[in-house]
Design a protein around this nucleic acid. Structure first.
Length: 569
RNA sequence: CGGGGCGUAGCGCAGUCCGGUAGCGCAUCUGGUUUGGGACCAGAGGGCCGAAGGUUCGAAUCCUUUCGCCCCGACCA
């Protein structure tokens, strides 16, 4: 491809609306253009990289025996109503009507579509297991799209769904996907961390996320290097201290705490550590108020609480509700002397001694509050988030925290959809059974952004060869007809050898061409200039490490190919 | 949805406080000189100042409304 005829709108300056590296570079290097918030147009250069990624995904998926399909984007509301997600996922879906007022959703995911397809095509255990997938656009009405293509309203995803006759089969299908994912991300030049994750609204049992360590990551991971424990903060747990404090329990008494509400203010007022308090947070779980009680230095983990309550909606209660159920304004709630509300106690609470907590009266706290004496631990669960420094649940050594960007997610879904949508096959005994499902996603467009997050420097992109839009960047620095013809010869030579070449044939000064080559970051740069016209010397530069070498026209192809082979090793 | 910031040429920005009919850099086009790390000279094109309404003799600038974009939060297979 000749650059003079190529749409590659590179930018010298960072676009004003981009904040993260990948977003800036994707725009500066001419991969994408923003259409509006959360939607991007892929230009030729960006699409080429995207294709490289989807080709890798497709290749590895096909190797596992999975079959590529293509589901409609316009999905009937009936499908969603059947699974119960029309209302449940409502806000995230773009729900639309046709002229006859029939309802549709632009697919935010395709469990229903695939399940429906399988329902009408598979009838016997002999046909199982199957794994079907697609690489297709997803539409999600994100509350806040951000970071370029990392969180957008429209993005490309590879989603796969496995159907097995039993749990043992699902385990095999799941493991195959885990392996394929490891291969896929490795081939894309990404270092990923597989972590245990929450299954969220998807339901199901096991779930792993493939995370790329990144400052722009939206997830917090808890990691233990000693035993390899890796979990998303949403579901990470930690080993608790099992022993009770040795202090002698004292009698509970009221303390006047005018206008002192936050844990911070309380710590100062009582001059003691945040952990001495019982923090009582009021939530509304599917319309019912509940109180979550955790140590003052801890945060309630909404996901864990939601899972424990098995509720669909969990929100912080508004001020009025808080007043109604505690008899006090925000800041004075506590488990002691309040029997009206369902209370969930964190696992640590039973070991507290002489704690301080709200008295359910304005401007009053209790001190020397003790479980068993001043309140009963009616319901106990792990409802706090684990933090840096907490002890690993498996080996008790200290865990640390890293930010992660989710590029892939695999689930053991279970029977949720096959039951809800009544998918059945006949088993060996001629009995009607539901197949068991797994589902497996990869954010393809997000993976592209992740690759760029991991491969760049101050001058621009540094493509791994596997996803580079072109392998070779040919920079021609020729003047007259003669010289230009000689460069053209080299260009043709490179192309004939099967290499994918971008030839900068523009009439621009060398500085611009070099800066541009660095920006768009193709793995190998071949420079044809006066050294070639005078001494038959061709310069090869490796973008990744700036290593330069010289070769002749005769050895060019071999040199380039051997460099390409060695670079990413 | 809450809090903050911003919409002026393709891109990055100044001008807005203090009203007088729009400017800088880069990019683009023409001609010429240049050519191994973002060259130079001369010339040219390009903007209803996000939109609507209002105040005024006169609005990019003041007032009202509205739309959009970015950041933080809530949200998030």
């Amino acid at each position: 491809m000749k650059l003079s005829k190529y749409i590659l709108p590179t930018l010298k300056e960072d676009p004003s609306d981009a904040f993260v590296t990948s977003h800036k570079l994707m725009i500066r290097a001419g991969l994408v253009r923003k259409e509006t918030a959360g939607t991007y147009a892929y230009l030729p250069f960006g699409l080429k990289a995207l294709r490289k990624i989807s080709d890798i995904v497709r290749d590895e998926m096909d190797k596992t025996g999975a079959m590529e399909c293509l589901m409609p984007e316009l999905t009937s509301a009936d499908l969603w109503k059947e699974s119960g997600r029309w209302d449940k996922m409502g806000p995230i879906m773009f729900q639309i009507k046709d002229r006859n007022a029939l309802e549709y959703a632009l697919g935010p995911t395709h469990e229903e579509a695939f399940t429906n397809m399988i329902r009408s095509t598979i009838t016997s255990y002999k046909e199982l297991p199957v794994n079907v997938y697609q690489i297709n656009t997803k539409f999600r009405d994100e509350i806040r799209p951000r970071f370029g293509v990392i969180r957008s309203k429209e993005f490309i995803m590879k989603d796969a769904y496995s159907f097995d006759i039993d749990q043992a089969g699902l385990d095999v299908s799941y493991d195959k996907m885990a392996e394929a994912y490891t291969n896929i991300f490795k081939r894309c030049g990404l270092t990923t961390i597989p972590v245990k994750a929450d299954t969220g609204d998807m339901g199901g049992s096991a779930s792993e996320e493939f995370m790329v360590a990144s400052e722009v990551g939206e997830e917090t991971l808890l990691l233990c290097d000693k035993c390899g424990y890796r979990a998303n903060q949403e579901r990470a747990s930690h080993k608790r201290n099992s022993s009770k404090k040795t202090e002698t329990p004292c009698a509970m008494e009221e303390v006047s705490t005018p206008d002192i509400k936050t844990i911070e203010q309380l710590s100062e007022f009582f001059s003691c550590d945040a952990s001495s308090f019982l923090k009582s947070i009021i939530y509304i779980a599917d319309g019912e108020p509940v109180m979550a009680i955790v140590a003052g230095d801890r945060e309630v983990n909404d996901v864990k609480l939601k899972n424990h309550l098995k509720c669909v909606n969990l929100d912080l209660a508004d001020d009025r509700t808080i007043f109604e159920v505690t008899g006090a304004p925000v800041g004075f709630a506590g488990p002691a002397g309040n029997d009206k509300i369902r209370k969930i106690f964190d696992l640590d609470i039973k070991n507290t001694v002489n704690a301080i907590t709200g008295a359910n009266k304005k401007d009053i706290h209790f001190k020397n509050v003790n479980p068993g004496k001043d309140f009963i631990i009616s319901e106990e669960a792990d409802i706090i988030s684990s933090n840096e420094g907490d002890k690993c649940p498996d080996c008790s050594s200290e865990m640390y925290v890293k930010k992660g960007l989710e590029v892939g997610h695999i689930f053991k879904l279970g029977y949720k959809y096959t039951e809800a949508m009544n998918v059945t096959v006949l088993d060996q005994n001629g009995k009607t059974v539901h197949p068991i499902m797994g589902c497996y996603g990869i954010g393809v467009t997000r993976t592209l952004a992740a690759v760029i997050e991991q491969h760049n420097d101050e001058n621009g992109l540094k493509w791994p060869i596997s996803v580079a839009p072109y392998q070779v960047h040919l920079v021609g620095l020729g003047k007259g007809e003669d010289e230009l013809t000689k460069i053209e010869e080299i260009y043709n030579l490179l192309i004939k050898s099967g290499l994918d070449v971008l030839y900068d044939d523009r009439k621009l000064s060398p500085g611009i061409k070099f800066a541009n080559a660095d920006l768009i970051g193709l793995p190998v740069r071949v420079t044809i200039g006066k050294n070639y016209f005078n001494d038959n010397k061709i310069e090869i530069t490796v973008r990744k490490n700036s290593e330069k070498s010289e070769t002749s026209k005769e050895n060019l192809i071999n040199s380039v190919k051997s460099i390409l082979e060695s670079i990413d090793k």
